[in-house]
Structure formats: C-alpha cells, structure tokens
Design a protein around this nucleic acid. Structure first.
Lengths: 349, 349
DNA sequence: CTGAAAGCGCTTACAG
DNA sequence: CTGAAAGCGCTTACAG
C-alpha cells in the first residue's frame, strides 16, 4: 500500500502564514490587491507545505475552465499505425499553443462509430472541442457536426465535406498549390498532372486543385487530373494513379499531388516502372510529412506552419466560446525544396 | 455574445423525475440499489434536460479522478516536425488504452527547460503521469525523475538512462533484436554491424545491442559496432555512420540499427555511394515507423505492438497508484519483413 | 488590505 | 429502496 500522503488545503496554508483562508486564495490566484509582504509569507508557506490549488474545487467554484478537448478522428478500426503523420504534427502544434496560453488539452483518438464521444463540454470538462483527422471517417465527422448543431463549441481543421458547416482553420491551400506548380514550371516541367479526387468533398483538396488549374492556365497550359481509387490507403492510391497515368499512354512530366502520402506512393511506382524522378517526372506533394525526407529522392512539398496552425485553432475556439466575430483562419505554408522536382533531364514519358 | 444556455443540475432532474437529488445521483452513477423503474424515470428526465454530471463537482466530492497526464518529451526547441514518429504511435496507443478503461488523458508536449511542468498530480488534475519521448532531452528526464523522487506517480516508456529509476514499460528488445539479426543471417548476410551508441545510456538501445551480440556469437560470428556522432538528428547519424563504415575499408554486408531513423539515413547514404540495398548490404531497423514503408527499398524493421504498449503503460500507472506490486512490462514485437534485407546478390563491400 | 460567510454541484454516510 | 443533510476545497461578494 502506498502511504496516503498528507495533502495541504488552503486552510493549512492560511494557518501556517497567519492569515485567513480567503487571503490565501487571493494571494495564490494573483489578485494584486494583496499586500506584497502578505503574499510573500503565503507563497513561502504554500511552498513549504507543497500546496497547490485543487483544480476541481477551483473550477467548480469559479465556473471557469481552462481545458480544451482535442479530438483526433482516426479510421474506424482505430489503427494508429497507418495514420497520416500530418495529423500528429498538427496535434503537437495544438498542444503547444494551448500550453502557451495556459490551457490544458484533453486528447482523445476517436474512430469506432460506437465509441464517439462529445460530452466534454456538457460535463464541464472542457470549453469546447478542436476536431481534426482523417476525412474518410464520415460517420465521425457527421457526429461532430451534430454536436455543433446541438450547441457544442467545435472548431475543425480542414472541413472535410461541403455538408459540414463547422468553424474551420485551414492551410493557405491556394498559395501553397500555386507555389508547388510554379516550382514545377520553373524547373522545366510542362505536362503537369494533378493527382487527387475530382470534385473532392474535402475542401482543402478542392482548393489545391483549383489553384493548380489556375496556375497552369496562367502559363497557357492545360490542367489534367488523375483521380484516386477509393478504398485504398493514400500511398496505394498514389501508386495506382501513377500506374494508370503511365498506362494511359498520354505523356506527362510532372505530378502535383493532393497530399504527401499520395506523392510517395506515386514516386515508388514511377521508379518501379523505370521512370526517373526528377529526371523524367517532377513530383511535388503537400503536407510536409517527415517521411518525405527519407524517400528517394526526397520529396519536395508544401509544408503548413504547424505552430501557427495550433495557435489559430486554439484562438478560433476561444473566440467562438467568447461569442466573438466568426473569423476563419488561414495558416501560412512554405515550399520545402528537396530533390523530387529539380529538373528534367530526358523527354517526357 | 453567445447565449448563456441553461445548464441543468441534478436538482432540476430530481424535480422533473419527482425524486430527491440524492436518488438522481445514485441512479446516474449506476448504483444498483436504485429501483429499475425509478432509474428509468431519472434517465429519461436527464436526457430531456440534456443533463450530464458536472465532472469538477463529482471529482471534488468523491475525491476520485479518472485522468492520466501524458507527457511527451520533445527536443528543447519543441520543434515537433523533426520528432520521431514512433512517439506519436505510442501516444495513440496510450490514449486508446486509457479511453478503453474509461480514463481521460491530459496530453502535454514538454521540451523547453523553463516550461517543464509536473503539477498535474499535486493540483489534483490527474492520478499520475506517463512520460516518454526523446531520450536526448536529459534536462526533462532529470526533471521527471525528480518528480517521482518527490512522490509523484510516474511511469515511463523505455527508461533513458541508468541514473533514472522510473517504473518502466519497454519493448521486448531482446526478442526483437534477435529476430532482426536472425533475419539477416537467414538471408545470407554475415558481416553484420550494429549501428548505435556503445555503452548506450538508453537502456532500450543497450538491450538491442546485447541481443545482437549474443545472436551473432551463437552463429559463430563477431559483433562489430559503428557508433553515432552526437549532436545530429538520428537520420544524419545514420548517414555518417554508414559513411564511416565504408571509409573504414573493412567489409560489411549487413546493418542492424538502433532505430528506424538511423536505418533510413544509413540506407540513403549507401545508395548514394553506389551500394545496393539489399543486394550489397541488408538493413534492418527497429521501431516500425511509417516512413520505412516509403523508403526505397522499404525498410525491414521490428515493430512493437503500440496498442499493447499503451495498455501496459496505463495499467502500470494504475497499479503504481494503487500501491500494487512493482511489475514491469514487456511489450511484444514483430518482425515486419519488407525489402531491405531480402538477400545478397553480390560480394560484400 | 483582510476576514467571515455563502455557495458552486455533486457523493455518501445515516436514518427510515 | 429513498430522502435529508453534511461537506469536498475552493472563489468571491460583502463588510470593515
């Protein structure tokens, strides 16, 4: 049995410091009205007694909460191994931003339909939820859309589908996609194909496609899209799209993909089929996932600023709770130049 | 301004159901003594009023907590982009396991020395902490060791250094390393080098080395270690170690690395220097990170069961809090055969 | 600037 | 099986 250690209360500190309990509470909550000398005695007594404010009591009495619920939507099988690492980087950014604002984060990974849970706010455990994750788990997104409709405070990353009207924060998909396509153009690629869904319900992907098409048009070139086969991992979808592209017989020399995992799959297949990247085909992805550093060649990509993404999401949620103006947020991106689009050395495939 | 919605209390439910407040509390907390008919009326009234137990009040009164603090130790600069994805998979496993046991997880990423924080338990926000992350942030590990010495309940993954005496859960490093080396031997590799620290303070790495040496010895072969240069990323350390190995002039045809990131760096350099993997050199890593699926060739590795790892950590913490026997935990691993060690087709380099 | 007192919303002995 | 009552440890008007 572990020894039940003595836990000091504010009354113990009050007695040790020779003041009343209310003064202890004021001093330790930083109320400036407390005399400096009094505060010092109290702080010292608290330190000696290893006293820390009981957060449940404080929350109950004040009604104030400093906790955000972060919901990571995973695949229905909840297998985290196959999970897009992009989401993890985002999670890190959110936790860091919350912490910098003195807030705590309750994190839950939710995937299985029968285990979805939005009771954080109703049970007063959090002021609201930040939701993000795979756009493929539609049941989960529908569930949290219903939570929001029901009065919960919900902010999401990305906005997975047109039917969803959650307040959102997104990457600067337009600027990122334009930078990606311009990078390909600047390095001599001309027959640049977009690999991703057509009419994509994921708005972030749709935005990337639109900017791709615009940028090509501005250069006097025709857009071309190679769509994905549903029901496969992003990596496998990239492989299949690249294979379909080769088999189509129509020449191409550049790929801009909806996300990095698709790009990595496509690159692997191109190499297998004897096409050199970047010599025959230039490839640029989107997301800045770490795996792109280790591919051969390393993947040129568009990387959102994850720290800013976390800040925007936390601030957006706080604003929503405070009833402030509905400002959406765009997160800046940067082009990360690695080896996969450094220039053609051969004729298009 | 957001409309301040009415929030029902147990008194409102009591009135609606025509019972006393104590009976509401009993019914909703699942006390079996409540009559079935009474319970039904109460549950229905609670549903109608959208009532949920206030978790702060419940915790304060009962003194019971169902929250675990999860501390992810990151590099001091808190840059999550470069963070080993292995840790993220572990985080997912922990959150899933806690959730399956009806517990919540407060997650914090901690790196900067001036922002380390272990007050979860003293402020009654959590029953204890699960700590894991980069072994390189010694200040952070020392800090949480001090927390444990100070009476906090702390369980860690891995145990970064001999000076640390935290209760731990670890992978079956011995079994994993043996499987890795046997896989290399089975595919014809004979001059197998371990790439990692010698006398490594990280016990997990030390265990991997020991099993490597034992397995080679059992096959009548000599161990050889190529150590890492401190102050670089794991990937860069792998590159440099592979370069040093080639430059040493001593032939080798297999690498077993302390972790996947090192293996990926080493593979990249081998290819750059014109050595084929797996034709000239077989490579096996440890961790099962997703990036290994996308490398060329894909990386054969030892993958711990992240779901089991999460369960063991949560259970270990609960046992520690309950004062139960100090059982450490080993997490099973499996050999993931991909392309990087499929057999030699040439003479050793 | 400090103290006495009320009360946040529950859980849980105790009584019946 | 149910109810009346105490009290968890704070914060915060109110009084001085």
């Amino acid at each position: 049995m572990v020894k039940q250690r003595f836990r000091a209360t504010s009354y113990d500190v009050a007695e040790a410091a020779g003041v009343s309990q209310s003064t202890v509470s004021r001093a330790l909550s930083g109320d400036p009205i407390v005399a400096a000398a009094t505060r010092e005695r109290i702080v010292e007594a608290a330190r000696r007694l290893n006293y820390h404010i009981d957060s449940s009591a404080s929350r109950m009495r004040s009604g104030r909460l400093n906790t955000i619920a972060v919901v990571v939507i995973c695949p229905e099988d909840e297998d985290v191994r196959a999970f897009n690492p992009f989401h993890y980087a985002l999670l890190g950014g959110i936790c860091a931003a919350a912490s910098a604002r003195g807030m705590e984060t309750i994190v839950s990974f939710q995937g299985a339909p029968d285990r979805l849970d939005d009771h954080f706010e109703r049970s007063r455990r959090a002021i609201g939820m930040i939701v993000f994750g795979t756009s493929e788990n539609r049941a989960a997104w529908d569930y949290f859309q219903a939570s929001a409709d029901d009065g919960c405070h919900v902010v999401c990353w990305g906005a997975p589908a047109p039917a969803h009207e959650l307040p959102w924060v997104r990457a600067d998909n337009h600027g990122g996609a334009r930078a990606a396509v311009e990078h390909l153009l600047d390095h001599g690629y001309r027959r640049i194909v977009y690999v991703g869904e057509a009419d994509c319900p994921q708005r972030q992907f749709a935005e990337r496609y639109d900017a791709y098409a615009e940028t090509l048009a501005a250069a006097g070139l025709m857009p071309r899209i190679m769509t994905l086969e549903p029901g496969h991992s992003r990596h496998e979808q990239g492989r299949r799209a690249a294979a379909a592209l080769i088999d189509s017989g129509e020449p191409f020399d550049g790929l801009f993909t909806a996300c990095d995992d698709i790009a990595l799959g496509a690159m692997a297949l191109l190499e297998e089929r004897g096409l050199n990247v970047p010599g025959d085909v230039g490839v640029v992805g989107f997301d800045g996932v770490k795996a792109g550093q280790f591919s051969v060649p390393p993947l040129t990509t568009i990387e959102p600023d994850f720290a800013v993404a976390g800040q925007r999401l936390v601030d957006r949620l706080q604003a929503l709770v405070d009833g402030e103006e509905n400002t959406q947020g765009r997160v800046p991106v940067r082009l990360v130049v690695r080896g996969s689009a450094l220039g053609r050395v051969a004729t298009p495939a």
